[in-house]
Amino acid sequence: MKSEILYPGAFPMARVELTAGEAIKAESGAMVASSPTIDVESKMEGGFLGALSRKFLTGEKFFFQTLRASRGPGEVLLAPTVPGEIVMMELDGVNEYMVQKDGFLAGDEMIKLDSQMQSLSRGLLGGEGFFILKVSGKGTLLLNSFGAIHKIELKPDQEYIVDNSHLVAWSGTTSYNIERAASGWVASFTSGEGFVCRFRGPGVVYIQSRNPGGFGAWVRQFIPVSE
């Protein structure tokens, strides 16, 4: 499997080359085009209950699609729903990543996807909801963001503060606490930041340069209200 990102920037597309028999998992609806040798299979990752829990708990789509080069080698073009960058990473089999809902675009067939429950405070205030996707295994992983994607590298015990809802993915070796953006409650909210996540290394944190919720609120003000 060989992947490359075409048209990097706001409207990128991922091109994945598959040898005969190879397959990738992709978010349902992510396929843009493919060679005629590629077959699309819809699969409920983790069985029916697993798929159901992912659908209702993480907000991810019920089915993932598996794109298999069953009739000879071919290529697949994939794109996310929202405008924003795609990042490609190689999982080494030891590092695990937590991915916020909607962050997963595609991945090697050998990659494992699980729904992970967050603690109450992280679920309520972290901005990613109570359930996130845990991605583990070995192979290529494609993530997508809203806006540009930025990688923060943390050394052991190094800390970094990220506004909640700007998170895309973070490695399992990091830990984070939710805290107020400013020292006082009033200042935290009047500053517009509310709650933030204080990450502690080692590990990497991928963040997106735009906040989908904030963008939604901004768009909403232009939508005419029906009587």
């Binding site: 030891v94 590092n95 050394k155 290394g201 080692p202 590990g203």
Partner: peptide, 19 residues
């Protein structure tokens, strides 16, 4: 053997080195 841990340090990448 296949790696079962990650090692981190000043000179190492942020994702650690599998070991």
């Amino acid at each position: 053997n296949s790696p079962n841990a990650l090692c981190f340090g000043e000179e190492f990448p942020a994702t650690g080195v599998p070991c």
